[in-house]
């Protein structure tokens, strides 16, 4: 029971909200949480093509300027740069801040 709520709460965190140094695991992709003008399904596919897929471990390596945007994220063996606006579509479970 408790773990379930814990999970649910964690699943509410998006990659777009994380700060530099945070480590997490991707639990879901939810396009509706991001601001995008792409066709439905397109952002999700692009994210997967760049390795941002359920189960992947990520770490935020660098933040841009100003407003800490975009971010550079370590995903598996590559480093991907993306904007927070799109990173909001990536739901994560925090591992370490």
């Amino acid at each position: 029971m408790r773990t379930e709520t814990g999970l649910a709460m964690n699943a509410g965190v998006s990659l777009g909200a994380l700060r530099k140094g945070a480590q997490a695991e991707i639990v879901a992709l939810d396009e509706t949480a991001a601001t995008t003008t792409l066709d439905t399904g397109e952002l999700e596919r692009r994210l997967i093509e760049m390795g941002l897929v359920e189960g992947a471990r990520i770490e935020i390596l660098h933040e841009g300027f100003p407003r800490r945007d975009p971010i550079a994220v370590l995903v598996g063996d590559s480093t991907i740069a993306l904007r927070r606006a799109e990173a909001n579509a990536v739901m994560v479970r925090r591992l370490k801040d």
């Binding site: 692009r46 480093t79 991907i80 740069a81």
Partner: peptide, 10 residues
């Protein structure tokens, strides 16, 4: 027009 997302490998 819309702003294209940035998804770029470093």
């Amino acid at each position: 027009g819309a702003r294209e997302p940035l998804l770029m490998e470093l």
